[in-house]
């Protein structure tokens, strides 16, 4: 089943401090698991949408320091995370599971039942 999972991304939105989170995507027998780094996001700020094969993950992150903070060093920005994938496989939307721990979102996309190989009994 290698190569059965096609993903094309929509262009990045760059206005208003939008950041593209790092992801790992693993596929096993048509089931797909995504791990998404969303450091600083509270679980209630995470929005996941799956429609017409398009999966969109968004999270807004509030500033943690006051506006006037003078940084001696700043290697990352804080704002909004957004990433979108076009998934060629079909998934069972009702069984998609999401969990969030230590700043990492885990999304489990089970393969749609009709897309799974099925043994057809031949009646005599």
């Amino acid at each position: 089943m290698v190569g059965s999972c096609s993903m094309a991304e929509t262009p990045k939105v760059d206005s208003q401090r939008v950041y593209v989170p790092h992801v790992d995507i693993i596929e096993k027998e048509g089931d797909v698991v995504l791990y998404v780094n969303l450091p600083g996001a509270a679980s209630e700020s995470i929005d996941i949408q799956y429609e017409d094969g398009q999966l969109t993950i968004e999270a807004s992150v509030a500033d943690r320091q006051s506006v006037g903070t003078k940084y001696l060093l700043r290697e990352y920005g804080v704002g909004r995370f957004r990433r979108s994938f076009q998934l060629a496989n079909s998934f069972d939307a009702s069984r998609i599971e999401a969990s969030y721990r230590n700043g990492v979102l885990t999304l489990k996309l089970p393969k749609a039942e009709e897309a799974k190989p099925r043994r057809i009994e031949v009646k005599a």
Binding site: V23, D24, I25, K28
Partner: peptide, 16 residues
């Protein structure tokens, strides 16, 4: 800790 290879096929591996 990265993702174990026995978990399946890795299509993206961006997380350090």
């Amino acid at each position: 800790q990265g993702v174990d290879s026995d978990q399946g096929t890795l299509h993206r591996g961006e997380r350090p």
